[in-house]
Structures are given as C-alpha cells and as structure tokens.
C-alpha cells in the first residue's frame, strides 16, 4: 500500500466523525435559520426574515458587547502573557517545568468552579477579599461584581492560559542568536521586539489570539456569574431565543452570524500558519 493511500485511510475516521459532528450540525443550523420564525420543522420553503430581524430588532448591543469584550480580552491576555511567556522561557530547568505545570492546572478546573471562586473572592461584605480587608485592616471596599469590569476581569482570568501556552510555543521559536545579532547590529530593546521577536513568535501569537478571541465571542458563563444584569452577551441572547422565546429559527440565524464572525477571523489567520512547524518543536 502506498503511504499516500495509507494516510488517506487513517484520516477517514476522524474526517467522517467531524463531518457528522461538526459540519452537519452547522449545516442544520444554517437551514433552520432560513425557516419561518417560531416554527420547529425543517421544510423546503426558505426565508430571510430572521436575518432581517437580526439586524433590526435590537440584537446589536449583545453582538457589540461580545465582540468588544473578545477584542479587549484578547489584547489584555496578550499583554499579560507576552512577558510571562518570555520569563518562563528564560527560566531553565526544573523550576520552569514546575511553574509551567502550575499555570496549566487551572485549565483543567471547570470554568464554573473558577468563576464561582472569583465571585466568592470579589463578593461585597462577606466576600474573601472584602471580608479579609475588613477583618485585618478595618477597610471597607466596594465591589466590581455585577459590573462590566467584573465580567472583563473574569474573561481575562479564564482565558489567560489559552493565550499563554500557544505563546510559549511561539517564544520558543525565537533563537537567542537572532536576538543577539539584532542587538549587535544596533537594534534597541523595542526594535528587537518589533523587528525580530514578534515576527518570529507570530505563529504562536496568532494561535493564542484566535483561541482567546473565539472562546470569548462565545463566552456567557462570565457574564452570567460575574455580570449579574450588567451586560447581555450574544450567546445569552441566542439561548433565550431557544428556551424562553421558543423561536428556533431566530436563534439559528443569530448563531449563523456568530459562526460568520468566527469564520471571518479564523480562516485568514489559520491559512497563514504552518501547523507542522509549530507542533514539531
């Protein structure tokens, strides 16, 4: 059997699974989105009513907040993760491995637990932070809980590791001698960052940014647990279409718009990356 043929055969199970579990559901959502509002059957007659409604009936703010939140969180995570990744990369040996491990552990702790913990920490009055400050220093503080800032902090907290780990791979793509060479040729610290480090670490940065952005666009647990009524995100709006409003086609149309935003960001970025190069390390 030729290697080409063997590769194809090995690819088949995963490809079929993703066709059934990923492509087909999106196809069905796309189809639902073209049905008459408040119907539950998939018929041959299609309409664009739902999409028209999506642009006219006040779904703007949830979209705006989800996308703004995603952009802001991605930027904040990148700014925090860049120095962290560089420091972890500089640290050699056992210490670095343990530290990296410690940073990875929270990824495997459920979002609901971490956000619950954050709300306990930030709670006014008897919360961990407020209660401790009052007991220790007799200081009374307010809270960012149930505000947009609280949601933003929660988003950064939850998604930081998703930015950090791809960035660690990216930072590992910068050979020290390229940095030395740039410095030797007269580059300042800032010029080295812009001319050498960022371009070389770009694949990791792109993956991290994509992952963070996409996860944030769909995020709703942060707003639900930390935001109270302060903010309405798009996933929440979609969910409401499905549950309270019982309007599946409308929910499907909104879902397709999120899919479109995601695709617009993911496809061009993914096309630029050589996955083999990044993973081979």
């Amino acid at each position: 059997m030729s290697p080409g043929r063997t590769g194809y055969l090995f690819a088949l199970p995963v490809a079929l699974f993703l066709l059934a579990g990923f492509a087909t559901p999106i196809g069905i959502v796309a189809w639902y989105s073209l049905m008459e509002p408040r119907t539950f059957a998939l018929t041959a007659e299609t309409t664009l009513t739902n999409y028209r409604a999506a642009f006219t009936e006040g779904y703007g703010p949830p979209f705006f907040w989800s996308i703004t939140g995603a952009v802001a969180t991605t930027l904040a995570c990148a700014l925090l993760a860049w120095p962290t990744a560089k420091m972890l990369h500089q640290l050699a040996g056992r210490g670095a491995a343990v530290l990296t491990g410690l940073i990875a552990v929270p990824i495997f702790v459920s979002e609901s637990v971490r956000l619950f913990g954050m709300s306990l920490f930030l709670m006014p009055g008897g919360g961990i932070l407020a209660g401790s400050l009052r007991a220790l220093f007799d200081v009374n503080i307010g809270t960012v809980l149930n505000t947009k800032l609280g949601v933003f902090l929660g988003m950064v907290y939850v998604h930081f590791p998703f930015m950090l780990f791809p960035l660690l791979l990216g930072v590992a793509l910068i050979p020290q001698d390229r940095r030395d060479a740039a410095r030797d040729l007269g580059a300042s610290r800032w010029q080295i960052l812009r001319e050498v480090e960022l371009p070389l670490a770009m694949p990791g940065l792109i993956i991290g940014a994509l992952l963070t952005f996409v996860l944030c666009v769909g995020a709703n647990a942060e707003a639900a647990i930390l935001g109270g009524q302060a903010i309405s995100v798009v996933t929440r709006a979609i969910e409401q279409r499905f549950s309270y409003a019982q309007d599946w086609p409308m929910g499907a149309a909104l879902t397709m718009l999120v899919v479109a935003v995601t695709a617009l960001v993911v496809f061009p970025a993914l096309a630029r990356i050589d996955l083999n190069k990044l993973i081979r390390r």
């Binding site: 050979p175 001698d177 030395d180 060479a181 740039a182 030797d184 040729l185 007269g186 050498v196």
Partner: peptide, 16 residues
C-alpha cells in the same frame, strides 16, 4: 552591543 562600533558574524549566521 548596539552602542558599539563592532559587528559579529555568528556561527549559526543568525540570519533573519
């Protein structure tokens, strides 16, 4: 090094 009027060819060449 960026303030010195010297320049180095690296063993790996360190081309960008």
């Amino acid at each position: 090094p960026n303030k010195r009027p010297t320049a180095m060819v690296f063993q790996s060449l360190a081309l960008f």
